[in-house]
């Protein structure tokens, strides 16, 4: 039970920690005041509690596709918010707007990623004999996530100090492309969208279920056996984000009369 708790927590919580690290390192560092983090944590927790209460009836909506459709809507909403924040950031727009948008995006992302884990907790905390194991598992999982987050934050900050700091957006866009591409698997699961057979399998190199697989999945949305549609969406979103940022960056610099980086 201890190992299972850690595995589940890493699967569900690691992407949240990766997102927090990106936001703190260079997207909206101002959003990380104690007061703001406390408010986001409390609001997310209340939203997750609400979702757990209504998740069972929701799962029966739309002929059993309710949960997937809710997750897809929330992922798209979260993606759009982070895209907007990135563009506002490049425009050097009002920080308060960015912080508010980041708060909403974070809360939505936390709800999507952690509701399954809270259902698991809800199941296991009914059995008093498992409480200690689950508690230790949660502590270990959070510890691993925080340790990774600290190293990743340090790497991003070091990168920011170099002359290639503009390229910092590349891992951020890979993360966003991975985030939005997951909607295809959710839609295929309930037959709203059809995926073709996987184009290749890199299971022999990095299994999706391995530690590296989970880490890459959290960082860039890695899939060991991607379908053609997944790759197309991933590439379009990634290239679209690069292009959109480059254009925005160009116009901002032109407007300000600054030299291009």
């Amino acid at each position: 039970m201890l190992i299972n708790t850690v595995v589940l927590l890493l699967r569900d919580l690691l992407p949240v920690f990766v997102l927090l690290t990106f936001l703190r390192a260079f997207i909206v560092p101002d959003a990380f005041s104690y007061k703001n983090i406390r408010n986001v944590a409390i609001t997310s927790f209340l939203f997750v509690l609400l979702i757990i209460q209504i998740v069972e009836p929701i799962s029966e909506w739309f002929e059993g596709a309710g949960l997937e459709l809710m997750q897809v809507s929330l992922i798209i909403m979260s993606f759009m918010l982070f895209l907007l924040i990135t563009l506002l950031r490049i425009h050097r727009q009002n920080t308060n707007i960015c912080i508010r948008l980041a708060n909403i995006g974070l809360e939505v992302f936390i709800v999507v990623k952690t509701s399954n884990f809270f259902i698991f907790l809800h199941v296991y905390l009914q059995d008093k004999s498992q409480v200690f194991n689950v508690f230790i598992g949660v502590m270990l999982g959070i510890g691993i996530c925080m340790s990774f987050s600290a190293i990743f934050y340090y790497l991003l900050k070091e990168w920011q100090e170099t002359s290639l700091k503009t390229l910092l957006y590349i891992p951020w866009f890979l993360f966003l492309s991975g985030m939005i591409s997951q909607v295809l698997a959710l839609l295929a699961q309930v037959d709203i969208f059809s995926l073709s057979a996987p184009l290749w399998s890199s299971e022999h190199l990095i299994e999706n279920s391995s530690e590296y697989g989970q880490l890459l999945s959290a960082l860039i949305g890695y899939q060991s056996a991607p379908a053609r549609e997944f790759l197309i969406l991933y590439s379009i979103v990634f290239l679209g984000l690069v292009l959109l940022t480059a254009i925005t960056h160009f116009f901002v610099k032109n407007r300000q009369g600054l030299p291009h980086e």
């Binding site: 998740v55 069972e56 799962s59 029966e60 059993g64 949960l67 399954n116 259902i119 698997a185 295929a188 699961q189 309930v190 037959d191 073709s196 057979a197 996987p198 299994e207 999706n208 279920s209 697989g213 899939q223 056996a225």
Partner: peptide, 22 residues
């Protein structure tokens, strides 16, 4: 992980998922 599927099935309930082509 192999099928890239993840679905909570509540107590006493039926759920449907689609898998493949594989």
């Amino acid at each position: 992980f192999d099928l890239n599927r993840e679905k909570v099935i509540f107590a006493g309930k039926k759920s449907t998922i689609y898998i493949g082509p594989l």
